[in-house]
């Protein structure tokens, strides 16, 4: 029954953080809540018996993809107005709710690590099984995903260049 409680607690945190992320006025605040929401889903994946997916969720979603958002928000807020905004954003009371949610998640993961794996529900599908399946029957999907990522890379490189702006007068 322990895992039930952990699941519902992480689910509540995820839903609350997602709601807060969608309803914020400030992009940085929304980003913090979105990261908390993704960490909550990582806990849910771990409780569900998918530890590899949980690690990937933290590494790629909450790590890499959110860093992209941070870069763009930093790029868009230049100048003195940006500095004023920084002062306005970094108020201590703004950190209370995300810290509280993160502390709850941390307590959950510490509890999970201290108990035996019986706290997990059902069967645990480890990374080894996933890797064998991934590069066995699903190797075509891996190739397709690599082509998709290459297309994303080329597209982002093209869209990020400045010459598109210079052409706006004549060829738009």
């Amino acid at each position: 029954m322990i895992q039930l409680g952990l699941f519902y607690m992480a689910a509540t945190i995820t839903v609350v953080a997602s709601l807060l992320a969608v309803t914020r006025y400030n992009a940085s605040h929304a980003l913090i809540y979105l990261i908390v929401s993704l960490l909550g889903s990582a806990i849910i994946f771990y409780v569900l018996g998918a530890p590899f997916a949980a690690v990937l969720e933290v590494l790629i979603y909450a790590g890499a993809i959110m860093v992209l958002f941070v870069f763009v928000i930093m790029m868009l807020n230049l100048g003195a107005a940006g500095v004023d905004n920084e002062h306005q954003w970094l108020q201590p009371r703004m950190w209370i709710i995300p810290s509280l949610l993160c502390l709850l998640l941390l307590a959950e993961i510490l509890f999970l690590l201290n108990t035996s794996s019986h706290a997990l529900s059902g069967t645990v599908v480890g990374p080894k099984v996933v890797g064998i399946e991934l590069f066995g029957p699903y190797v075509l999907a891996v190739e397709i995903a690599s082509m998709l990522l290459l297309a994303g890379l080329v597209g982002a490189y093209h869209l990020g260049r400045r010459y598109l702006l210079d052409m706006r007068g004549e060829s738009l």
């Binding site: 998918a50 990937l56 979603y61 763009v72 699903y138 995903a145 990522l149 869209l159």
Partner: peptide, 29 residues
């Protein structure tokens, strides 16, 4: 109790990464 769900999760992850990269490039434009 199968691994296929996690494999689909990884494919969705790569889709999300590509989508965010292109989307943020469009946002800058």
């Amino acid at each position: 109790g199968q691994a296929d769900g996690q494999i689909m999760f990884m494919l969705i992850l790569s889709v999300a990464a590509a989508e965010v990269a292109v989307g943020l490039g469009l946002l800058l434009q």
